[in-house]
């Protein structure tokens, strides 16, 4: 594998491709705004501006070194967990205990950074799963206990455990991906998941008619879902052989896994928002909402792709 600017050459080329797509998309949005009524495209403009920041941050994080990339991914977990804990009902008595929940993030990402798969895979689902309910019980307040335990465990699984698969992919992929290293795998799953979101949204806007989940997320349509997944499969089939050890058929299958998992992550967070009666999970990313609105699909796609790849392509 050839290294350019400290990154595998295929990743550099693919990153350049992402930036090219961003520039073209921005020009289209800009053109739309010049032609049509400016207010109609305000949201789209804000969204596009935010994409510049997000793609910029991601490029910076993977370009510097692995440590910076892991810190970047851990910060996403931090922001997602904070947003989650701020949205859900909590008990006053658990306030101090939630500080320990945040502490789970550096620890979990440390397992990933040191490629300690055994600890990585049991720390949240076994140790924290047992630890937090016991800690809550030992404080003696049983009012709302089950709800507090349930919401905290689920939140940690989603925002810390699930998202940390990205860091594990980055580190463990170093030996398992001779084509473009761990960063190639990370790039593959992150870019395809985000692309899949946009593709599903765009297909839905263009030809969407039949609702998939009218109660949870009324804007999601079968046309958007199928069109989006098929587009993702096609892009994955092209990108996969270039960035991963998978041939185009396996890459297409991985694209399907990412597309469907991304959709499931999306509607899961939508169900949470509907349950809590909020429209957005926060206001961190203009035009998008909160960080959970942006990484909702990744919370499913990252572990799904990680274990798909680990099962079929790790000796």
């Amino acid at each position: 594998m050839t290294i350019v600017f400290g990154l595998p050459q295929p990743v550099v080329t693919a990153t350049a491709g992402v930036w090219a797509v961003l520039v073209v998309a921005s020009l289209i949005v800009w053109g739309l705004r010049l032609r049509g009524p400016a207010e109609r495209y305000e949201e789209l403009v804000r969204r596009t501006e935010s994409w510049w920041w997000m793609i910029g941050a991601f490029t910076f994080a993977i370009a510097v070194n692995t440590t910076v990339a892991i810190v970047f991914l851990a910060s996403i977990s931090y922001l997602a967990l904070k947003e989650y804990l701020s949205l859900i009902p909590t008990r006053r008595i658990d306030r101090g205990l939630l500080l320990f929940a945040y502490l789970a993030i550096p620890i979990q990402y440390y397992w990933a950074a040191t490629d300690w798969y055994g600890m990585f895979i049991v720390f949240v689902p076994v140790w924290l799963f047992l630890f937090f309910p016991a800690l809550m019980a030992s404080r003696g307040d049983t009012q709302g206990f089950l709800r507090a335990v349930g919401t905290l465990s689920w939140g940690l699984m989603l925002t810390v455990f699930a998202l940390s698969h990205l860091a594990m992919l980055l580190v463990s992929g170093e030996v398992n991906n001779p084509v473009a290293g761990g960063v190639g795998l990370l790039f593959f799953v992150v870019v395809l998941t985000q692309f899949n979101d946009v593709a599903q949204y765009t297909w839905g806007k263009l030809i969407g008619r039949h609702k998939v989940t009218p109660k949870v997320s009324p804007k999601k349509t079968w046309e958007g879902l199928i069109g989006g997944v098929l587009t993702t499969v096609a892009v994955a089939a092209c990108l996969g052989p270039y960035l991963t050890p998978m041939d185009w058929q396996w890459s297409a299958l991985a694209g399907g896994v990412i597309g469907v998992a991304g959709f499931l992550g999306d509607i899961t967070i939508s169900a949470v928002k509907r349950d809590l009666g909020v429209k957005d999970t926060g206001g961190l990313i203009p035009g998008h909402g909160g960080i959970l609105d942006r990484v909702d699909s990744l919370t499913y796609a990252a572990p799904a792709f990680f274990h798909f790849f680990r099962y079929f392509f790790t000796p």
Binding site: Y78, K82, S86, R95, G96, L98, Y102, G282
Partner: peptide
Amino acid sequence: HGLGKALPKGSTVLVPFNCT
């Protein structure tokens, strides 16, 4: 909203919460 959860009266430990 929210800062009363992050650092309420009588507490010296800051717990991160979003504020609106």
